[in-house]
Design a protein around this nucleic acid. Sequence first.
DNA 1: CGTACGACCTGCCCGC
DNA 2: TGCGGGCAGGTCGTAC
Length: 293
Amino acid sequence: MPELPEVETVCRGLRSHVLGKRIARYHQFREDLRWPLPFGIKDKVEGSIIEELNRRGKFLLFKLSSDYIFIMHLGMSGRILVTELSRKENESKHPNEMGSFFKIKSTEPHDHVVIDFCDQTRITYNDPRRFGAIDIVDLDMINQHKWLSKLGPEPLGNSFSPEVLQLSLKNKRSCIKTALIDQSILSGLGNIYVCEALWAARISPFRPCYKIDGLEFQYLTESVIKVLKKAIQAGGSSLRDFKKVGGGLGYFQNCFNVYSKDGCKCKRERCNSRIQREIQSGRSTFFCPKCQL
DNA sequence: CGTACGACCTGCCCGC
DNA sequence: TGCGGGCAGGTCGTAC
């Protein structure tokens, strides 16, 4: 589901709800999401304060006062919900996995992890498809973590430039779309924003990387940055189940030029072609066959 | 090594 | 109304 703009939207929205707060309870309703939830996580998070919340690629990083980083990935369908527990809800007691009792409200389907803060705020991780993931790692090992260590540059960070992109792609035989979706080349792009950025840069998703020239890498870099910034401003894209923290919808889906627009007229001025959909390495690619070359 | 593809899950939407 | 097939924002392991 969420690509960089959606994760950034969640990250920004969550900060005001969690920063500086102490975690009273960690509870999980199953042993695994995409992978097993880490052993001992409960003891590492309970009692600690969330000091920072940041995003790296599509990962959310919660820095805890216990000197751990709590890492979360939303997969395709993951969501974080915030609830303020009323006194009434707080009084209902349910058994936890240890056989003792503490306060857990009845949950929605696919609520997998619940974190309660001392001030009665609760965040709930909900993920129907369970492609998401959670881990916890020592603060000083964060850069060695297998999910993070191979990530390419942040597209909205200082280490991203046309030159950097060209350097990592100039010898690749694969198509530019496949390369841009590869998190080790650039972190945070997914199917939507790659399609949108390639349309904006007028580059065909099927073009082999090594055939792209310096000027095009410049257009492409600018397009990626522009599309992502615009999407973040719009609060991300709400397709199916993406909702911002607090339940609001993003509205970047109203700004799509190609994604899911097959059969529609190309929005570029004086281009009268229609957007096509094709399967590219197993996933839908949307593009204009006339103005993307 | 780089690249391509199936697998992992559930839900929804469409056509018959 | 019901069911089967195709589709979905991601990533990894495997096979070339």
